[in-house]
C-alpha cells in the first residue's frame, strides 16, 4: 500500500485529529496494513452491481409532525465543557 507521511498528515487534518509528528510513522504503517488488506475488494467482479448502503428496503420514513417538549436548557447544557449563561462557550470562530 502506497501511503506516505504527507497522506497521513492530510487525512488527520480532514479527520480533525491531532496526530503528533513522532507518531506519524507508526500510524502510517498501521493504516497501510489495513488498506493493504482491504485491497482484495478490487478482485471482486462488481460490474453492474448497485452499492448497498443499508440492509433494509426502507426509504423516506415519516412520522407525524407533532410538537413535543424539548430538552430544558439546563439539561442541554449540563454536559457542556464550558458555558456562558444559557450558551455553550466555545473558542472564537473568527479571529479578531
Amino acid at each position: 500500500m502506497d501511503l506516505d507521511l504527507a497522506d497521513v498528515r492530510a487525512v488527520a487534518r480532514l479527520a480533525r485529529l491531532d496526530v503528533p509528528e513522532a507518531d506519524l510513522p507508526r500510524v502510517r504503517a498501521e493504516l497501510a496494513a489495513i488498506l493493504g488488506y482491504v485491497e482484495q475488494l478490487r478482485a471482486v467482479d462488481t460490474a453492474g452491481v448497485e452499492p448497498l448502503a443499508h440492509p433494509l428496503p426502507v426509504s423516506n420514513v415519516f412520522r407525524d409532525d407533532q410538537p413535543r417538549p424539548s430538552l430544558p436548557v439546563d439539561e442541554a447544557l449540563a454536559n457542556a465543557p464550558a458555558r456562558t449563561g444559557d450558551y455553550f462557550a466555545v473558542p472564537a470562530v473568527f479571529a479578531d
Binding site: D7, V8, V11, A12, L14, A15, L17, V19, V27, L31, I34, L35, V38, L41, R42, V44, T46, V49, E50, P51, L52, A53
Partner: peptide, 25 residues
C-alpha cells in the same frame, strides 16, 4: 483515520463504493 481516508475525494469509488457493492454481493 481509515474512515476519513476511504471517504475522501479520489479514494471513495475505489474503497467505499466498491465495499458497498461487495456488500450487496
Amino acid at each position: 483515520l481509515i474512515g476519513s481516508y476511504v471517504l475522501s475525494s479520489g479514494y471513495k469509488d475505489a474503497y467505499y463504493l466498491q465495499a458497498l457493492k461487495v456488500r450487496r454481493r
